[in-house]
Write a protein that binds this DNA or RNA. Structure first.
Ligand SMILES: [Mn+2]
Ligand SMILES: [Mn+2]
Ligand SMILES: [Zn+2]
Ligand SMILES: [Zn+2]
Lengths: 143, 143
DNA sequence: TTGATATTTAGAATGATTCCAATTCTTATG
DNA sequence: CATAAGAATTGGAATCATTCTAAATATCAA
């Protein structure tokens, strides 16, 4: 439940690059995200942050997560209009939501798939981002 | 701004299949959606429905659109947590949002792309739906 | 060490959507 | 056609994720 040196360095570097300051709260919120990569909501991150000695306000959790998104450390994941979830996986990947458990899984995106997806765009469409979200069931007995 | 016979038939059939009744308001809301396939929000559909003689309530626009989604006539389109947009295009397609104009375009999805996308899922993942959303800029001078 | 600037915070405000309960339609049945 | 039971419509209240506000606190370059 603590950032290691590498993670702490990445946090400081990314924040500085965005003109933001490393704070106790930001360190803690990032460590919560990295501890379990299960795409928690703001509320869930807040609950998990209760372990912090003096606690942390909900507004600060919103602010920290926003600063991470702005500095490129974390991505938002949305399913319909449900509360936004947060994902620290920086590789290109899609998401799969198990509609029975509510769990959201990362699905790695091979480069060839990305290329093929870009190829379906008409002339003149310049994508800056693409989001791919599956939802369905998983027939596994693990995790 | 009126449903033709084919469209009216599809409406009645789909609604009946879902145990719902065709009403003046539902006919009108569907005709608004079909008139301009530009993925309007509820508010926009409501504005465009003002032409209806006696008007229509916002709650009813919400209800009509929900009944269309339930009966499979229309799909919802979400970008982050912006107001939900509605799309009567029933072919498999992705969406592209021009971040300068806010316009949302349909991008047809070739079957081979769908197949390739399903192939990236691990064993045991059974997708029921997939959503693909681009956002970026368009360099066209038309429409 | 210190001042300028950024962050944190509790609570209020916002805004899309859903809920509610009263009224009005729709349609199956006689 | 008339009727009644169930469905839909409606205005307004409630919900709830998120954003805003302004006062207190923390960070850090100089
Ligand atoms: Mn769904
Ligand atoms: Mn974006
Ligand atoms: Zn992810
Ligand atoms: Zn569409």
């Amino acid at each position: 439940m603590r950032l290691n040196t590498t993670e702490l360095d990445r946090l400081k570097t990314s924040l500085k690059q965005a003109g933001l300051k490393p704070t106790r709260q930001r360190e803690h919120v990032l460590s919560v995200l990295l501890a379990r990569r299960d795409h928690p909501t703001v509320e869930e991150v807040w609950q998990r942050s209760r372990t912090l000695s003096r606690g942390i306000s909900l507004a600060t959790v919103y602010n920290c997560l926003e600063s991470f998104v702005d500095s490129g450390l974390v991505k938002q994941v949305n399913y319909e209009r449900e509360p936004t979830r947060y994902c620290p996986n920086l590789r290109p990947h899609a998401h799969f939501k198990d509609q029975e458990t509510g769990r959201v899984y990362d699905i790695d995106l091979p480069n060839e798939v990305l290329i093929q997806l870009n190829s379906i765009l008409p002339e003149g469409f310049r994508p800056e981002a693409i989001e791919i979200s599956f939802h369905g069931r998983t027939k596994t007995q693990n995790s």
